[in-house]
Design a protein around this nucleic acid. Structure first.
Lengths: 205, 205
DNA sequence: TGCAAAACCGACCGGTCGTGCTATTCTCCG
DNA sequence: CGGAGAATAGCACGACCGGTCGGTTTTGCA
């Protein structure tokens, strides 16, 4: 007697994530969400004690998907440069959304959208977002550290600096692809990464 | 008999820009704006035919200030590498807000906040925003082009690619400084720019 | 199959949103 | 200083917001 509710809740979170990616977690409203799900607003609300709780549930869902689609698959590659490359490729793929089928257009990374939505809005959602963003740059820095240890990257490389620039490339990609609708955005991002990667690599001899 | 109204309108736009930088152009509301200005909501509204008109007025004001504080001052430097450097320094300074006095904390660039606010929200505001963002990356690319022409940058440099990465550094700075509150953010941004600049520079001989 | 609990609904609350309309106050020119 | 017109206030509107509550339907174990 605990099945149906959980399924509905999952369905709500799924749809909410979708809407939140477009309108932001604040811009998403319970009424329209319920309407889209063909559910009453109160029925929807009953699954969460507050809108904030729903927002955090949505954020957790996004984190889970990100882990599954980007972070975990990178581990199949050997430590070092290949894993760093894989991380970038997975990240780029993440920008085109959940579809496993071929998809051309860039939907963007929900975390980047949420980052600017909450960088001036204190609260539990922001705290959770900060935590997961720190985790993410930590993951990138860790991969870079391993690449140094493997001898693929220069010994004097600053992994945190690498992660900073890595992140910048993704943000520029999102900006160029979504707002300015530059068809060359993805190519530019790859070129930027190639430069970052080359600079980080250990000299051939 | 055209004085007072214009002064009030300017005051409204000033305050609105301030609020919009924190809450976004959508999150900013006429009621609270009027309250802060000690003005009636209808009195405020009378200066603009719609909220969208106010939003665009705010955007125009931001563009004007950006031009004054970032784009125009760069022209005092000679064409080429010095001008590119100046552009970056002015841009970094722009992130700390309007204060001419020393200010430590990063307030962030309103355009970057607005970019993610409107990348999924069609309308006149978005159109204006896209236009000014294209102008901005065009300005950066133009400066890079001149640096190539002056022989400071490599002849085979892609100025648009340079502008893409330039923008990415600023976005990473905003993210690191505002959301994650990383005290090293500005240092990281400068280091990233130094690397970008060095890669773009023509070989010494 | 009975029945308690879980799931869900519809109506409704106070509040706030953007936006009109009308009346009053203020400002500046003649 | 008087009056025309700009500037502003007062007020109300319809819509929608997040959230509450009492009642109805559905579910799944005993």
């Amino acid at each position: 007697m605990v099945r149906k509710g959980e399924a509905t809740r999952q369905q709500i979170v799924d749809t909410a994530l979708q809407r939140a990616s477009e309108l932001g977690l604040e811009g998403m409203t319970l009424g329209r969400l319920a309407e889209e799900l063909q559910i009453s607003k109160s029925g929807l609300f009953a699954h969460f004690k507050s809108k904030e709780a729903l927002q955090i549930a949505v954020l957790d869902e996004a984190i889970e998907r990100f882990t599954e689609r980007v972070v975990r698959p990178m581990l199949v590659k050997p430590r070092g440069a290949p894993r760093v490359r894989e991380l970038f490729e997975r990240w780029i793929a993440w920008f085109q959304g959940e579809t496993d089928t071929a998809e051309e257009e860039i939907l963007g990374c929900p975390f980047l959208s949420l980052s600017s939505e909450y960088d001036d809005r204190p609260g539990a959602v922001r705290d959770a977002l900060v935590r997961c963003q720190k985790d993410w740059i930590g993951t990138v820095a860790k991969a870079a550290t391993l690449a140094v240890r493997e001898g693929h990257f220069r010994a004097d490389l600053d992994p945190e600096q690498f992660a900073f620039e890595f992140k910048g490339i993704g943000m520029a990609l999102q900006h160029a692809a979504k707002l300015v609708a530059d068809p060359a955005a993805e190519r530019r991002a790859r070129a930027a990464f190639a430069r970052l990667f080359a600079d980080a690599s250990a000299p051939l001899q």
